[in-house]
């Protein structure tokens, strides 16, 4: 891309940035040059849009983030890309609170827990939880999404908090004290047979079913 692939247009409400092409490096290079020349002029300015026929969504987002965080401009970051604030380990969400349903079961924020969770320890997260270790009786996992335990799950696991019935709980060894998915609560039968293979728990017709996810092993 040659010169003038970027032009800045000012209107009463703020500025538009018109770009030609989709070459991020040259666009950013030229944009930064222009912004530097104008010194502090654009600081705090409101960028209304990045306009260009060929610019991709990803590159447009890159430019927006650059303007927002490097040049302190007011930029709309599309909802989809909004950086979610990290939940703290003991994020509180009481069961009675009305929650928006967390729909991401295929993807989404995931918390990794390294090591064994012991009695009295609790991990709550606004997305999925993966435990690389065991979860002992008396420990509690609470996730809005899925729960995966790369070890033995003996404690209580609560997946799909807020009404997500698509959430699953999977473990190498699934021997929970109690399982909760969405608002369904189940406990193992009294004469529980302990299976030696990995299993997954999910909701089918308002019931929690547990089945091996590697049926041939």
């Amino acid at each position: 891309m040659g010169k003038d692939s970027v032009s800045i247009k000012g209107v009463a409400e703020g500025i538009y940035i018109d770009v030609k092409g989709n070459d991020l490096d040259s666009i950013v290079g030229e944009l930064e040059l222009k912004l530097k020349k104008s010194g502090e002029f654009f600081k705090g300015a409101k960028c209304l849009d990045i306009r260009g026929e060929e610019i991709s969504k990803e590159n447009s987002l890159e430019i927006r983030l650059l303007l927002k965080y490097k040049y302190d401009m007011k930029v709309n970051i599309p909802e989809l890309f909004k950086i979610q604030p990290m939940e703290t380990e003991k994020a509180k969400f009481s069961p009675d609170e009305k929650q928006t349903v967390f729909n991401e079961v295929e993807e989404g924020m995931t918390k990794f827990v390294h090591g064994t969770l012991r009695s009295g320890q609790e991990v709550s997260f606004n997305g999925n939880i993966v435990v690389i270790g065991d979860v002992n009786p008396g420990a509690l996992l609470r996730a809005k999404g899925n729960i995966v335990v790369l070890g033995t799950l003996r404690g209580v696991a609560q997946a799909g908090i807020g009404g997500n019935t698509k959430a699953v709980v999977a473990a190498y060894s699934l021997l929970p004290t109690q399982l909760r998915i969405s608002d369904i609560i189940v406990r193992p039968p009294e004469d529980d047979v302990q299976y030696k293979y990995p299993e997954i728990a999910k909701v089918v017709n308002d019931k929690v079913v547990i089945e091996p996810y590697l049926p041939n092993k």
């Binding site: 069961p95 009295g120 009786p137 209580v156 004290t177 109690q178 406990r187």
Partner: peptide, 28 residues
């Protein structure tokens, strides 16, 4: 609280949903 055992001794551990703290904090 924090070192509960009575539920285990009575064989009721897997039925616990709410506990004494939920009661005093009026969560249930």
């Amino acid at each position: 609280i924090g070192l509960r055992n009575l539920d285990v001794v009575m064989g009721l551990e897997n039925r616990i949903v709410y506990d004494i703290v939920d009661v005093v904090q009026k969560n249930c």
